[in-house]
Design a protein around this nucleic acid. Structure first.
Lengths: 345, 345
DNA sequence: CTCCCTGATTAAAGCGCTTTAAGCCCTGGT
DNA sequence: ACCAGGGCTTAAAGCGCTTTAATCAGGGAG
């Protein structure tokens, strides 16, 4: 196919330069201006011209040079996404961000967060690429830093509540999510429902609050029991062993997240305690692990797709529709009932 | 801090433009040429000039515009990485690619592969960003397509063996990896060692071959037993049930990958069969799951860090050192012994 | 015929950088 | 006193595109 000498430069070194707008223009005997208009689908050029240009471009294998057009148009049409590359949940968000962005004519630049690459580097990279807006997945930086950043480019925080800063934020109602779990368990007949905490972050605070108020709502104030924990599997395991040592098992345990819940499951199973026969366990996040048949964990889904969609919408509103007052979009999480919760006894 | 009006543009709409090279130059009364030289660390400018420029740039919060410099220098210093965003192994590779690239003065552009975003789009995006080389993680495209691509920009395939095409490839010796597992099991005293296959891909073929030849090497030709399977957890579970239905359990099972091995574990545990007491199980990949205490799976590590490093090196060799003949770099995988393998009986 | 549109096309001026060749100013040799 | 040479600095020409204002060819109206 494509037998024209037009084809391709060498990957080696003596590379033939890729075709430019000018080459396409020369081929059809038009100006680069016209070609540019056609290729961008701007109305103006006649139908005949349009066809000829399109044909020539295809024949030459022309691809616009993003860097050049970004420079000239002062618009990169790029959304920068900071992502913790190891997080399955972020992976899911990215997936949906891609499709949402494409629908509105934007492209994504991903900047990974790793043990050696902090939020600052990640963000500076995005800015260096001239991203027009920054979508930060689960940013940890203080609200004030994010606010400063927002002055350089619109910032949309995803998955984290921002307090005390005027910033766009998309998130799910974490307290509500935990509330749903508690409701579910109470509905099954549970009364002694313990909670394994997730530390001192904003999210952890919300979930803990959700647990507390749900318990109160059901008149189970007396049964409130919170164990220290964090975001890791180990924390869950430790909490599990704590329950076992204690002798007095609750009939259900809700964990801060899926990782922690899986730690609990591991501890219980190892001790020969049947889940959900003897004790019910629930997590939060609906991550890949929770879906494994080996765990089949009841959990709460954060609805990645909708969050992604809203984040892109927020960005577009600020970029193309001149919105300037910050917006907080809080979505309702949804309970995912699987095999680790059942009637007590 | 930073109380200069110099500070920051507005994230809203009436944004103050970011400082340009020219602004820095004006501030110190020099030409943009000099400032450019200083900022890039090119020798020439005097020490005094250097200091003044650096100071001014810092005061203005100047950040070079990648797009502009890429355009002007005809070098983007960008490596494009195609990554299956959902893969934990790829996440690890990306992490190390970042650090390796940074060491040689390159930056990464990630392009995600998702159910709705195929290899072609991913790659075209990278090219549109003017990436100088393409690092493809586990590409599925036919070798010929990759070879064509290589004509547009140097391609480095990671994790997959490329046959019949002149291309750079970095991978681990999959046959050797499985061989190591078999050796380990035989060393423990196992003789009936079954294998759950991974389908018909290049990698699956290599691993299967590794299993076969290792068994033969140990004079266990008679014991060779290969079950149909694929890359998923379900496949492992199915294989596990098959063993159970069959009645005749081998003393050890090696799975194509960790996912599949975890499926096996799930099936066995569910049936009340003790692992590794009654049967040993091993996977391949050393992914995040295998490390969970709940699984604690014996597996094979593909040494992400070294692969990443080699991939970047290969790219740099072609880009900056004019290497033009393709190179295949095959690394030795390493056995990771955990808790799912033990002496038989 | 002339004039004024209208629709199609394009010349030309950048976008924010890099890079090359030229320029300036000194110093030191003769 | 003159010139060569070295150390710094910079003017200016792009990089590959976009965009604005201007040009141009027709066509219908007057």
């Amino acid at each position: 196919m494509d037998e024209l000498g037009s084809a391709a430069p060498a990957g080696g070194n003596g590379a033939i330069p890729r075709p430019r707008l000018e080459d396409v223009a020369a081929r059809v005997g038009l100006s680069t201006a016209s070609v540019s208009l056609v290729l961008r689908g701007v109305p103006g050029p006649s139908e005949r011209t349009r066809q000829r240009v399109l044909k020539a471009a295809a024949e030459l294998g022309y691809r616009p040079d993003r860097t050049a057009s970004a420079l000239a148009s002062r618009r990169s049409r790029l959304l920068g996404v900071m992502v913790a590359i190891h997080s399955p949940f972020h992976a899911e968000l990215v997936e949906h961000l891609h499709t949402a962005a494409e629908e509105v004519g934007y492209d994504l630049v991903l900047s990974a967060l790793t043990p050696n690459r902090d939020e600052n580097t990640a963000v500076e990279t995005l800015l260096a690429f001239r991203c027009e807006a920054l979508i930060l997945l689960g940013p940890l930086a203080p609200a004030s830093v994010l606010a400063d950043l927002d002055r350089r480019a619109p910032v949309i925080s995803v998955g984290r509540r921002i307090t005390g800063a005027e910033l766009d934020a998309v998130r799910t109602a974490d307290d509500d999510g935990v509330g749903q779990i508690v409701d579910h368990l109470v509905g099954l007949g549970h009364r002694t429902i313990a909670y394994v905490d997730g530390g001192k972050g904003v999210i952890a605070t919300d979930r803990r609050r959700g647990y507390r108020s749900a318990m109160r709502r059901h008149g189970l104030d007396e049964q409130i029991g919170i164990l220290h924990g964090d975001i890791t599997e180990e924390a869950g395991e430790k909490a599990g062993r704590h329950f076992l040592d204690d002798g007095e098992l609750p009939t259900a345990v809700v964990a801060y997240n899926d990782q922690s819940a899986i730690g609990l499951l591991t501890a219980f199973r190892r001790a020969g305690i049947d889940v959900p026969g003897t004790i019910s366990v629930a997590g939060y996040d609906d991550n890949t692990l929770s879906r494994l048949a080996a765990f089949d964990l009841t959990t709460v889904s954060q609805n990645a797709e909708e969050q992604a969609r809203q984040a892109v919408t927020a960005a577009v509103e600020r970029l193309d529709q001149g919105r300037t007052t910050p917006r907080e979009i809080v979505l309702a999480p949804s309970l995912v009932i699987r095999g680790t919760t059942a009637r007590p006894r």
